[in-house]
Structure formats: structure tokens, C-alpha cells
């Protein structure tokens, strides 16, 4: 079946199998930041934005995304790199495998909440698993990033 998706700002039309998931579709279009880390919709690594909202691309059919707007990390590199630097500064990446999905969800968090509380941050990011670094470093990175964005301390 044919689908047309606005992927990172460009209209893409392609023939897909009805049971292809969105994850495999965006990867077939060269968006390799999007990865599959589990088979149970639990890890958050496959996070991308559909119509501005973070979703699990492993769990959505490409057919369902027909006519919608998709953004992956390839489509927001500057913003991702800006936050990524804070993650690196806090040593919050070891293997780094979880980072693309995590960063996409952190950026989504800041689109939804201007000034999230600690509880709101934790709840929003609960669906992003990291097996090596632990979550404290990630939280430190977020606090430092928020302070920087508010024009407080520089990094």
C-alpha cells in the first residue's frame, strides 16, 4: 500500500507492507537514530514525534502514520546536540544506546511543560529505560539544561 508522510520536513511517498511498523519505515528512509530496544513497547528507544507528540515507533504501523508529520532526531539535530552536551557533561551516557529515544522525549517534555517540576520530569521520562548509567546523571543534565535555558548559570 502507498503512504505519504512528511518526514523531517520532506514529503515522502513509499510503498509499504500493511504490517510494517513506523520504526522500520523511518529506518528504510535513512533515519538510523531511531532504534528498536525491546519487543514489549517498554524501553522508549524508538521514540519519535508524530504530529508533535512523542510516540513509540515500534508500536505504530507505518500505515497509521499516512498523512501525518514525523520528526526524528535527524530532523532536530541542533536542539538534540544542545541537550546532548549536557548529558555528556554529567557522564550520563555510557554506551549511549538509549540516548536518541531519551533525548527525543526530553525535548518533547520541554515542548509540553515550560518549567516542569521534578515529579513531572520523572513521570514524563519513566518510559525511557537506560541499562548502564542510572537515572541520576540524566536528571542532573536536565536540571543543568533548564538552568542554562533560563539564562542562569552557563554550562
Amino acid at each position: 500500500m502507498q503512504i505519504t508522510i512528511k518526514l523531517n520536513g520532506k514529503q515522502v511517498t513509499a510503498d509499504v507492507a500493511p504490517d510494517m511498523n513506523l520504526l522500520n519505515f523511518v529506518r528504510s528512509q535513512g533515519c538510523y537514530s531511531v532504534k528498536c530496544g525491546c519487543e514489549t513497547s517498554n524501553c522508549g528507544l524508538c521514540t519519535l514525534w508524530m504530529d508533535g507528540k512523542p510516540v513509540l515507533s515500534c508500536s505504530i504501523l507505518a500505515a497509521r502514520a499516512d498523512g501525518h508529520e514525523i520528526v526524528t532526531m535527524e530532523g532536530c539535530q541542533e536542539e538534540a546536540a544542545e541537550f546532548g552536551a549536557f548529558l555528556a557533561d554529567q557522564g550520563a551516557e555510557q554506551c549511549g544506546f538509549c540516548s536518541p529515544g531519551f533525548i527525543m522525549n526530553v525535548l518533547a517534555l520541554f515542548r509540553e511543560y515550560e518549567d516542569p517540576t521534578e515529579e513531572e520530569i520523572k513521570e514524563y521520562l519513566a518510559g525511557n529505560l537506560c541499562r548502564c548509567s542510572g537515572y541520576e546523571g540524566q536528571l542532573r543534565a536536565i536540571r543543568a539544561y533548564m538552568a542554562y535555558k533560563k539564562g542562569g548559570e552557563s554550562k
Binding site: K53, P54, A108, A126, G127, N128
Partner: peptide
Amino acid sequence: LRHIVGVQMRNC
């Protein structure tokens, strides 16, 4: 609802 998996999952 807020304890179910994660925000991305609940958006699906």
C-alpha cells in the same frame, strides 16, 4: 493512567 508504561506509550 499515569502509571502505565510511559508518555509515549500512552500517546499510542
